[in-house]
Amino acid sequence: MTEPQTGRVEIDDLVIRFKGKQGPVTALERTRHVLEPGTFTALIGPSGCGKSTLMNAIAGFVTPAEGQVRLDGQTITGPSSDVGVIFQQYALFPWFTALSNVRYGLKQFGLSKREEIDRARAALAEVGLEAHADKYPQQLSGGMKQRVAIARTFAVGPKVLLMDEPFGALDAQTRLIMHDLLLDIWRKHRATVLFVTHDVDEALLLADHVQVMSHAPGRLIRHYPLTQPRPRALSRSGNELLEIREEILGLLHPKSTHADPLI
């Protein structure tokens, strides 16, 4: 497989502010960062620190107060199918079947109906849901809904994939299955992934890079590159991951027994 050339995300002196009752509130402090093509970055931080805000800026859902985000040199001004988004609440359209949900994204390519259905079916097969193509989201479990959402997003071939605590609503067992599934599909499609989570273990199991964010207003405070081969397990990947885990937990809860190395 050739290394992808596209999907480079440059976050360039980005500042996000929201209107508050007493004037503007900074949700994201000045941030400068690059996501290299095809990498898998986990973004971890305390609740309300601005992880989702940063993600929303890359998705084009919020407008920067200062700075900009560029995708392969082009400034992002709004949502597009180059940047796929997986939401914690799935965001499937309940009036469409699983198949029609996947077809929704494919419509933009102007395929023949036959081809559109074939591609949608193939995308569902990739997440193991070909047998459930004609079911409505309400008839599927949480894990299956998120599979449909993953199939729907990958089917349009995004260069960047943003995931906002995608498995946060699932039970531990399902979550592990979804991790394997996600890594499998990502290996095939090779989008640049930014994965927002508050689960340290999840970040360590999945990512090439773990970025830790500070309390609000958020900024990136620590970067851990991970080179351990996947699939990983915290117990058998050696002590290194466990040490990083301790360090991150210390950063996230500075008032616990861990000394905060940043103060």
Binding site: A59, G60, P79, F87, Q89, A91, F93, W95, P158
Partner: peptide, 27 residues
Amino acid sequence: DIYMRASRSLGASRLREFVTVVLPAAA
């Protein structure tokens, strides 16, 4: 809002979004 966000990051045109997302959501 999440339907609109999902629709736009799937590359839907405004017309298709109106007919197949906004209308059913308001139905």
